[in-house]
Design a protein around this nucleic acid. Structure first.
Lengths: 143, 143
DNA sequence: CATGATTGCTATTGTTCATAGCAAAAATTA
DNA sequence: TAATTTTTGCTATGAACAATAGCAATCATG
């Protein structure tokens, strides 16, 4: 049996866990024609109707330049609509089809998240989310 | 303030945490001229001298095809050496320079991992690694 | 020995993410 | 108000990473 010293590195295990679970979620969303970033955007647009592309990008840590093709794809699929706020900014909203698609996606995601948590032994389960949130957000941003 | 319903999705938070910590580690390794995959390979080669490229790829979940350029880069940098095991397989080993480089990298990584854990509130800290390991490895592979 | 699996590789593609630059439109400041 | 700075949405581009298909040589198996 090979030695695997990497198993004790939180950073490495984090990487592997994220990759594994990400690949699985991507596969489950594929039949809906959505990617992970699509769904997170749909969720945030639904929760914040009229949000601008740049504000959305800031929440998701996606650069403005990289938002363009993603939003274009979702607009072409008629999942979102853009409405001018002023001469510069554009607000985003879900279309009816977008809302319907999101509810399907949410079912997939909810099931997935539940299964994910089930894999974690009960004694660790409730610690996962707060621990990860602490890793992600800078200490001063956590308030 | 924008609503962020994503903060309660373990899968999403996992993704963000992995991305954030990964970017930081990449930045810290950059002065050494190493990437994350380089270091994980160096660690595994040191722990398992003579390991083949394909076995290494299996441990790291990197396809054989994608191992080629990585190993070539590290061989060109004279961090690793290849030695024929038989007519087909090739064993990998660290060179002296590779061992020296790894010890520097390990210092960086150890500091990084320690800081990572420090960000996690103490009551959650010891749960992170086992929880993540449970997510990553399939239930039947955990024994 | 014949078949099948493994190894290391080439070639190619797709996705993601980062940077630089740009014009138009705010917002800020003097 | 006028001048300057910032923000927004975009184009273009390149690096890194990962996935697939295919191939010849070699090894393991029945």
């Amino acid at each position: 049996m090979m030695k695997d010293p990497l198993a004790s590195y939180p950073g490495y295990v984090l990487r592997r866990a994220a990759h594994a679970s990400g690949a699985e979620l991507t596969a489950r969303l594929e039949p809906l024609g959505l990617r992970q970033s699509d769904v997170s955007m749909l969720i945030l647009i639904e929760a914040n109707p009229g949000i601008t592309a740049s504000a959305l990008g800031r929440m998701l840590d996606i650069q403005r330049a990289n938002m363009v093709p993603i939003l274009k794809r979702m607009e072409d699929a008629e999942l979102i609509a853009r409405e001018a706020i002023d001469g510069k900014s554009v607000g985003l909203e879900l279309t009816r089809a977008g809302t319907a698609k999101l509810s399907k996606a949410r079912a997939v995601i909810d099931a997935f998240e539940a299964e994910l948590l089930e894999r974690v032994p009960v004694e660790h389960r409730n610690h996962l989310l707060p621990a990860l949130n602490a890793l992600w957000r800078e200490p001063d941003q956590q308030g």
